[in-house]
Amino acid sequence: MTEVAILREDRDGPAPVRVRVPAKINLHLGVGDRRPDGFHDLTTVYQAVSLYDEVIAEPAGHWSAEVTGEGAGVLPVDERNLAVRAALLLANRAGVPAAVRLRLHKRIPLAGGLAGGSADAAGTLLACARLWELDLTRDELVEIAADLGSDVPFCLLGSVALGTGHGERVEPVDAVGQYHWVVAVADGELSTPAVYGEVDRLRDNGIGRYHDEVAPLLSVLAAGGDADRLGPLLHNDMAEAAVSLRPGLAEVLAAGASDGAVATLVSGSGPTVLYLARDEHHGHALAARLRLRGLARQIHYVTGPVAGAVVC
């Protein structure tokens, strides 16, 4: 069983632990019909990309948190923050005091379908495990992560993975290529529960269905297929619902296509939009053209897959 790299050092007191953790995108997001318990089965293919938050865990007499960068002054720094909940849950499971000062420096946009909150929670689990010198296996951290949310286990692991259940059951998959993306962060936010609700409403009216076939996509990833092979296999069952709630997203999607993107895709529950580029040069050029259009408040060029949460 693989051990998480949690090293002990002789020192007068524990040093701060800095963890870098990536955003995620969904190359495929299949959403099942609403179940009697209110949840939806998911079939998703995750990829971690090179847009990072940083979590710093410092020794303290009691827990506290602060946020800089994206979301500063907006995100709560109490138990409503998923990173804080991660620290409290880990301390409870390990039977240690939740004595940590968390500093979250955010670049991943808020409520953009890129799992920024889940990334912070994953980074916090790893940082606090190191700070508190806990002997935890990778599987044990992933198990704790699953109790925090469907995207948290993947943000801990990174690279490429197949997610099932509510997305919390994560199975790494073979992927040998590198892909180039432009991430357009549209104005405003979309509530994930609201988008799920719109998926249900549209299905009740005969619009949309559950797409759970991912074998062709996984084959292309395993073979290192290029962008032209990958593009036609990208899919998101939540896209119609996101556009229904935010009609302006249709223009953002169309802009990427007209500017030469290999494929365009709503990221997760939106409103962030992804554009697949052929290579680095194409990605930078595409990002520049999209910035000139002014349709999004942020444009990022990123690559993937990248590693999950790592101590740095």
Rank of each mutant, 00 (worst) to 15 (best):
G260A: 13
D139S: 14
A184R: 04
A215Y: 00
G71H: 04
G116D: 09
K106E: 03
P271C: 08
L218W: 09
F154L: 07
V199I: 15
S258E: 15
A194M: 10
V4F: 11
E189I: 09
G167M: 04
N236M: 12
V17S: 02
L253T: 06
R8P: 05
Y301E: 12
G206A: 08
K106D: 00
R85Y: 06
D228V: 10
V311D: 11
A5V: 08
V31W: 01
A222I: 04
L82E: 03
A309D: 07
D204E: 15
V306M: 07
L114C: 03
P97C: 13
R11Q: 12
G13S: 14
D279I: 05
L265W: 05
P193A: 08
D151W: 09
A255M: 05
H62Q: 13
A215M: 02
V96R: 07
A111G: 14
V142T: 08
R85T: 15
I25A: 03
G61K: 14
I299H: 07
A122L: 10
D151A: 06
R201I: 14
P36T: 06
L90M: 10
H284M: 10
R101N: 08
V310Q: 13
V74Y: 10
D228Q: 06
K106T: 00
Q47D: 10
D139I: 05
A261K: 01
V262C: 09
D200W: 00
G38L: 02
S258T: 12
E58P: 05
D53I: 01
A263S: 15
V273C: 03
V142Q: 11
A175D: 01
D135E: 15
